[in-house]
Amino acid sequence: MEPTASLGVQLYSLMSLFDPFCGPVGFLNLLPDGSLMSCGDTGWGDEVARGFFVTVTLALCTLPIGLTIGLFLSLAQQAEIRSLRMAANIYTTIFRGLPELLTIFMIYFGLQIAVREAALALGYARGFDINSFVAGVIALSLVFSAYASEVLSSAFKAIPKGQYEAGYALGLRPGKTLRLIILPQLVRIALPGLGNLWMILIKDTALISVIGLGDTLRQTGIAAKVTKEAFFFYGIACLLFLGLAMASSIVFSRIETSVRRSGVNR
């Protein structure tokens, strides 16, 4: 076995130890055998749980990429140089104006065509398939970053100019002023807006199921088709998304209180 594969298997078995659905302490084990949501071969519990983890992983992979691009976008949006501002505004106009579903399709099919053409040009006989997870992360990052840049830009506007001037007066370089003085304050101001964007991101991950990623919605959809219990399984999908939203709002309010404690009162 290759080392990376075995590492993956070990990681997976480690993670399944803490699986709240079908792990050793999973609550779905409490269901009687033969019920629709039980674990193992008879029920759909483990399949749905796997989809749920794909949803969470997708959102967690998108977040750092989207935030980083969004930060650079918002820096460009308030630059004194007009070409930078224009370039950033074109980006946000496009990705905020397009339906998320269309962005996903365009990235998925467009990447596939681009990769095939590139492979043909390089002399390979056939192209490679684009992983729907990768396409999903790219598409969601584009959309997320466009929205994040707006939130961060308005947070930048809320920081008084004196903070920058104080940084320069201390002899800090612009980059250091940004990192040491502005960003810590920015996080506090932008946090509620970013929390909203995270909720929207979680809901948008459901759209990736249409390009074949086995996320919550797709797995419950398969279960619904096989068992003909569509209402039950799509209801489960909705409940899982609701649970995710509730958990996120708890985490975010925790972060907000801890951040507010360390901040200055204005």
Binding site: A230, F231, F232, Y234, G235, C238, L242, A245
Partner: peptide, 21 residues
Amino acid sequence: YFFRGTPLIAQLFLVYYGFGT
């Protein structure tokens, strides 16, 4: 809370496929 906390696509599937049950 329900309609803002779940994806629109899941709600659509719930109505379209779910009521078919």
